[in-house]
Amino acid sequence: MAKAWFRLGAGAGAAAVVLMLALPAQAQGTADLIDRIQRLEAQIRSLNGQLEQSQFRVRQMEDQQRRMQADIEFRLNELENARGGARPAQQPRPPQQQQQQQPQRRGDVFDPSEQQAA
């Protein structure tokens, strides 16, 4: 019985040795994964910062555009008021009769109306 326990103990010891040898590799793999996660998190923080800066610039440009548009409309209204109001509406001109003109034909295109025998 002591021999069986010894065999089991020796087998368990071998398993323990294998586990102990495998743990550093697993620990190294875990450390690599943690390092990679930390780098990815830093990259995400950096990209979020860039995104927020871009959004801020877009908001600034939108505000600037609104101010410029309001300024242009104000100036146009001032010019119209200075002239005594808006331009009087012009009477629409009668549509000119378009001359019926044959479209120019290309010389290299086959026209069956010109060659009745074809």
Rank of each mutant, 00 (worst) to 15 (best):
Gly84Ser: 02
Asn81Gln: 14
Arg57Ser: 13
Met68Val: 15
Ala16Gly: 07
Arg75Tyr: 14
Gln91Met: 07
Leu33Gly: 03
Gln28Met: 12
Ile72Pro: 00
Arg93Lys: 10
Ala22Tyr: 01
Ile34Ser: 04
Gln64Lys: 12
Arg39Tyr: 05
Ala15Ile: 04
Arg57Thr: 11
Ala82Ser: 15
Val18Gly: 01
Gln26Cys: 04
Val17Phe: 09
Arg93Cys: 02
Arg66Gly: 00
Asn48His: 13
Leu79Ala: 10
Ile44Asn: 02
Ile44Lys: 01
Arg39Met: 11
Asp35Cys: 03
Asn48Met: 08
Val58Ser: 06
Ala16Trp: 07
Gln64Ile: 11
Leu23Ala: 06
Arg45Pro: 02
Gln50Ser: 15
Ile37Arg: 04
Ala14Cys: 09
Phe74Gln: 13
Arg39Gly: 02
Ser54Arg: 14
Gln64Cys: 11
Ser46Glu: 14
Gln26Gly: 06
Gln90Ser: 11
Met61His: 13
Asn48Pro: 00
Phe56Tyr: 12
Leu51Phe: 13
Gly13Cys: 03
Leu21Lys: 03
Arg59Gln: 05
Gln26Glu: 02
Glu52Phe: 13
Phe74Ser: 09
Gly85Ser: 03
Gln60Val: 07
Asp63Arg: 13
Leu40Ser: 12
Ser54Tyr: 10
Leu40Asn: 11
Asp32Gly: 02
Ala27Ser: 04
Leu40Arg: 10
Pro92Phe: 00
Leu40Tyr: 09
Leu47Glu: 13
Ser46Arg: 09
Gln50Asp: 14
Glu41Met: 05
Asn81Lys: 13
Asp32Thr: 05
Ile44Ser: 04
Ala15His: 04
Arg87Ala: 11
Asn48Val: 14
Phe74Trp: 08
Met68Ala: 15
Gly13Met: 01
Ala86Arg: 15
Gly85Arg: 01
Ile44Tyr: 01
Glu62Cys: 02
Gln65Phe: 15
Phe56Ser: 10
Phe56Lys: 13
